[in-house]
Nucleic acid binder design. Structure first.
Lengths: 259, 259
DNA sequence: GAGTGGTCTAGACCACGAC
DNA sequence: TCGTGGTCTAGACCACTCG
């Protein structure tokens, strides 16, 4: 139900690559070829192949035909931002339990991330996420006041908060910013995830915005080690990911040992 | 300069956003406005703003003007793939020590990632990376045979292997694939990074290709916790990052993309 | 030198958002 | 309603790759 011609073409090419019709290393037909086959202009073809390129599926250099780089699907934005959709896509039974829901003053970091005044009231939610009954992730989220009433009204076992927000409140997530690092499990983490205290967790801190750039939530998700890996691909053309120094590195001069 | 008009326009807009001329939340001029100001066609303007959008700097919705989302620069591709460039950009003194360099048969994973026959010979390199004299990362890399001679010829304290490869062998990295997760420090990790055994490390496994998609190296980098965080941004339009199940989750239905 | 992708133009129509 | 971005066309020239 795309309606857009270039999406249709991109989908067909993607399917052909995933289906092995163009194996890794193979050359795609030229732009003019594709334009003729689909009875569209070259510009439309370029929109389509541009999508695949930003997926990391194909590469291109001036003067040479486009080449197939990989043969793997990438998850969608919704699956990245929604634990529920991701889990279901893997064929798991997804569950969640809200363990705590309190209104309190925003921490300095929450205020900065959410773009509100320090000390403003936020709704703080602690939630355990499970796949096939196994605890996999602890989620600690600060919601801005304007979505708090909706979140407060949800049942403790709501499967997808962002889904519910979209349906009940018309609030749709459009942009996200993620920070990924590793931390030792705290005592609450350890109890909830059934791991030893101090054992490695993969942490994903995450800001979600509306289409207009209005912050919705700032969240700290901690995954049990071995349960998840994040994947990024980039090229000289597009680098979506960057590396930031952590607290232990390079203030002016002095480093510290890590815990 | 670049020679490409749309790059020039993108650079000017980026500078204006970073410089605060368009603060976060502000609306950009319309496409026709910009086209007139720069005496270019609307298509060229769209190429420029498309760049900023893929940087996550601005957002757009049909019918409304583009809006400024953030005011931060993203690191370049080179900085992502090169520890040396990243460290220098932070103002740190960057060092590296090659601790081991052995030719051996590829493991199953290395063979799969590098696209060579299982058991083929690869050059395995273990290297400690330091910032301002502090050990920050352990790097374990398998190089394909066709770059091995160049790597073998480098001194133990080479600062940037990929830089040297580019200069000596004309091998330039163009595409990268990254897998990020958390692992406990092994005994070698612990000794080299001066942390306790079992303490959390952020692991970045990483495939590097040439412009033609030919694999160069497969590497396993482990960062001391607190020394680094990875940042990603995505939108409904483009999702460069995906989440993969780890070994502990959901074998039954469906194939896995990562391993 | 032929073919290919990279860039650019000057139009056009539509769907959507703000007023 | 009117301006906006989203899509599309049918040309064009150039830089580059490859045989």
């Amino acid at each position: 139900m795309s309606g857009a011609r270039y999406l249709e073409i991109a989908e067909a090419l993607r399917a052909a690559i995933l289906g092995g019709e163009y194996p890794v290393g193979a050359l795609l037909p030229s732009e003019s070829d594709l334009a003729a086959r689909w009875s569209v202009s070259r510009g439309t073809v370029r929109q389509a192949v541009g999508l695949l390129a930003s997926d990391g599926l194909i590469g291109s250099r001036q003067g040479a035909r486009r080449v197939v780089l990989r043969r793997e699907l990438r998850h969608s934005f919704e699956q990245l931002n929604s634990f529920a959709q991701w889990g279901r896509a893997m064929g798991c039974e997804v569950a969640g339990r809200i363990l705590d829901r309190t209104s309190r003053a925003a921490t300095a970091e929450e205020a900065a991330r959410l773009g509100v005044a320090p000390g403003s009231e936020v709704l703080y939610v602690v939630r355990l996420r499970l796949l096939d009954g196994e605890p996999v992730m602890v989620e600690r989220t600060a919601y801005t006041d304007w979505v708090a009433p909706f979140v407060r009204a949800l049942p403790d076992d709501v499967v997808s908060i962002m889904n519910s927000l979209a349906e009940d409140a018309g609030v749709v997530a459009h942009y996200g910013e993620h920070l990924i690092d590793a931390v030792p499990a705290g005592s609450e983490d350890a109890r909830l995830l059934q791991v030893r205290r101090g054992s490695p967790l993969l942490r994903q801190r995450h800001l979600t915005n509306t289409a207009t750039g209005r912050p919705i939530e700032w969240t700290d998700d901690r995954y049990r080690a071995g349960s998840v890996a994040f994947s990024v691909s980039n090229s000289a053309a597009a680098a979506p990911l960057s590396r930031h120094a952590g607290p232990d590195v390079a203030p002016p001069r002095g480093g510290r040992a890590a815990g």
